[in-house]
Design a binder for these strands. Sequence first.
DNA 1: CCTTGAACCTGCGGGC
DNA 2: TGCCCGCAGGTTCAAG
Length: 279
Amino acid sequence: MPELPEVETVCRGLEPVMMGQVITRIDTHRAGLRVPFPEALSENVAGARVLRIARRAKYILIHLNNGMVLVIHLGMSGRMTVEEAGFKPARHDHMVIHLKDKRMVAFNDARRFGVVDLVEEGAMESHALFRHLGPEPLSNEFSGPALAAKLKGKKTSVKVAIMDQRVVVGVGNIYASEALFLSGISPKRLAGQVQGERAEALVRAIRKVLQKAIRAGGSSLRDYRQADGELGYFQHQFTVYNREGQACPGCTCDIAKTKGILRITQGGRSSFYCPRKQK
DNA sequence: CCTTGAACCTGCGGGC
DNA sequence: TGCCCGCAGGTTCAAG
């Protein structure tokens, strides 16, 4: 479900709830998700205090004062909710973090593509989950020349390439389509052909769509939380994503003749684009 | 090394 | 109403 902006919004929602709190225990209700839950998870976090909440790529990082980092990936369908004392886990609430103030943070994931791991602070960089990750799109490390260098010689489409977390992290299926529309680049264009000014434009567009979505989460939610306690913001309005057959904004073409926004399949995923505005 | 496609799993909406 | 199909915002692994 979530791409970088949604994960970022969840992190900001976790902050006021977990920061400074002691974790009393973690309950798990099955052996694991995409991979098994860490061995002795509850024993290894019980009594530890939350120092800070951070994000790397689409991973939530909960830094503890015992030198460990609780790592959570939401996969496709993962959701985090804040629960009050007396909460009884429901279907797909696979993990519940208990806090000293009796509140709980539940991790619900119907499709179970999520990941939970416990990593030593010093081993984060070299950890298998993080070792191959590309630059953060909102950092200075991510630039036109840097992206162009990564894409040079690549034979895949630019759409598939920018979803490759080794090229740049955080961009998923929705924001890939959105950023390509904003930059006027066809999703079908060969990645290797995105060089120079085109790469600059794509970097600007990726930054812009991600930042705008993060801001939307912050401005539309109190404490980054929905009324039901769910953290994060998942109801954005998109420009091309999931708008097959509709006119794109500002389109002057006749929708009856042009079919409007097109949907194609690339790398097994849907791409949405305007063949007139994107070349 | 690169590229592609399948696999993982449940839920939902549409068509019949 | 029920059944079947395709589709869903991610990542990893095997095969070519």
